[in-house]
Design a protein around this nucleic acid. Structure first.
Lengths: 216, 216, 216, 216
DNA sequence: AATGAATGAGAGTTCATTCAT
DNA sequence: AATGAATGAACTCTCATTCAT
């Protein structure tokens, strides 16, 4: 068992945890198996993490810290709202599509309990929804999105659509490229499914909308 | 100790289970607590269910059997595709919006593990996606939906949007009426978020789409 | 399921119990399985027996009551000590050899615990040893057995030999006729294994012998 | 809480198990009681043994491994067949007579079920019977045992006699010295109970004998 | 007498976490 | 820092027994 003395131990533990959580599920995952896969002793895990739960939480925080950061940067260079939405969708799908185990942890294991869900929402998702809201608000300002767009609903629909793409991809197990779905999803989001000219806008899209996760 | 002979025992156990699963999470839920809440002895549970997991599975199957059935019937009387989509959305949101504990079980506990997820997908979700697909295919036939609509993507977007509405509602904990979101969600799905006339349809919504859960 | 109203129910329960105890072992035997095999309801068993243990105890008592009785009668007609010992051995081996399940219960299940063993010894075995002692004492009196025979040891050796024949027969599973072993066992007991004339009786067979089960 | 590092833990657990099994019986014995008596935590037992049953099985194997070995060695120095049979009997009785709890486990607990019995027979008893067979065959060869001796029957009678001595000693609870019974038992086995010169050998000791446990 | 649904006490085993080395 | 043996709390499920019918 190679035991590099460099302190990538923490990283090795996190990587091992992703695999074990993804394959066994959080509850069925054994700390000792994570340790074995990381090439460390059981007790060593507790030098880096407070508890089994802490591994999951830190895993999430670390991945998120990296990608939310990158996402904001990626948007800087993009001029139009559709381009920005596409970039967001693509990054969302590519990050999770690149590592099925990580995707399983994010789509399944992290939603183990309302407790995790709330944490999940409170930290990263909040930011994500705020970002979507900004982009859409700007889109409304520059005329690329409907003025009457209910952004609360729209941000959730957008996120929900992407989220379901990822979940379907995991469950389906068919191994297609998740990232390529960004364009059709965003196109559908922008254009709608209705035939052009056919949908009379009988009523403005609900005025009094609901707050929700991500809502401020 | 009263020995109620009525055979609502099974039902009482399921109702108690919904509450306990919703509040504690499936793993942390104790069979003895379900029994206590149902007013039966621990052992009695095992006269009606094979195991703790069986309670969750049966819970799901029973609720689904009822609502998938009702949903198909509800669609019979509806003429237009938008009306049908709205009916589907409304039922989806109202059923879960009417019982927060049940919603938690469906949104959170049932997704505990890929094992449950797969079961979930294989049984009910499959039907649900098939139904959405039919309605959309018909919509394309009668001209109310775009001919170039990628139904694989569209059904997932539609489902994902509703699913996220429910999850947000649970997590947000703000207690608004979930059912009222059906109309804005469906409207957004049909019209799209883009300003009318502004989105040049640069490319047809992706031809070669991905299969996935619900895909046939 | 035929349910003869005659009150052979008790007998049917005992017969079912022999089978179930023999096949599963006393601890693994389920009262409900005995009930099923006997064609009665679980609760009915408790109208005839106080407990699961009571079934085993009564089973033993009933079989014994019958055979100890018969054994004493059978000896009446026999003149010589060797004939009497052969009759005892033959009955012992034939009774158990005729019903493997019963033999299993007597050889294995009834020796589950020192508690059963002590009961077993206190009731029937005591009588059995007393009978053997009588026959041997008489044999010493009429000159057919050695005068210096230590009867305490001899009765145990005789019983132990038969007991081992039965156990071997059960475990071996070869299905030969157990009863036919009576003659060689008794012959060996009487003649000894030593070559005639070769064994110098260096010392009288232990004067101060041990008391033991069956011993008074 | 002292954390004794010495690795006699395994031995302490086995010793505790002998006591608890002997006093309570295998089924009624509680793992937690064995742990308490051994001065270890419940879980520690499972670092050394796979299960409660494994404790019993290992207990048996370990004791046997030691004594079968010693028995063969002890026979090397002995010239005559009677001396060898006496040595076997003495060792058998002394080993079990030295530790009543161990004797209870071997005579009673290990015969809990046909499953244990078969294991018991298949492993050690087989060897024991083979050894007895060898010694007796040799005795026939050197003229110290009858030529017509049915060794199948004789080995079982010999073993059964010793086995019953042990069982009687346990049940009787009178605390005499078990080892001293070796001589009278072996003498009886060799000389027989019949008065010399009185038993006309009417028929040769059964030719077609039964196979059985220990039989090849 | 008979039923069988209901009871509820009870225990083997696992595994996250600790801590002496 | 690292180890891994030891800990002990915790929980599902079984099944002998009861008792309302």
């Amino acid at each position: 068992m190679p035991r590099p003395r460099t302190e990538d131990k923490r990283k090795r533990i996190l990587e091992a945890a992703v695999k074990v959580f993804a394959r066994k599920g959080y509850f069925a995952a054994r700390v000792s198996e994570i340790a074995r896969k990381a090439g460390v002793a059981d007790g060593t895990i507790y030098l880096y993490f407070r508890s089994k739960e802490d591994i999951l939480v830190k895993l999430f925080d670390e991945v998120m810290a990296e990608h939310v950061q990158q996402m904001r940067e990626a948007l800087r260079g993009l001029a139009t709202t559709p381009a920005r939405l596409r970039a967001i969708a693509e990054r969302h799908l590519r990050v999770l599509g690149a590592n099925r185990d990580l995707a399983v942890v994010f789509q399944v294991e992290l939603r183990q309990s309302t407790r995790f869900m709330e944490r999940f929402t409170a930290s990263w998702l909040q930011d994500y929804f705020a970002l979507l809201n900004e982009v859409m608000e700007e889109g409304q300002g520059n005329g690329s999105l409907r003025e009457d767009l209910n952004r609360k609903v729209a941000t959730k629909v957008f996120f929900g659509a992407l989220d379901e793409m990822v979940t379907s991809w995991i469950i389906g197990g068919k191994g297609y490229d998740l990232g390529q779905l960004a364009i059709p999803v965003v196109d559908l989001f922008l254009q709608g499914a209705g035939a052009p000219g056919r949908i009379a806008r009988v009523r403005p899209a609900l005025a009094g909308a609901a707050p929700g996760r991500g809502g401020k």
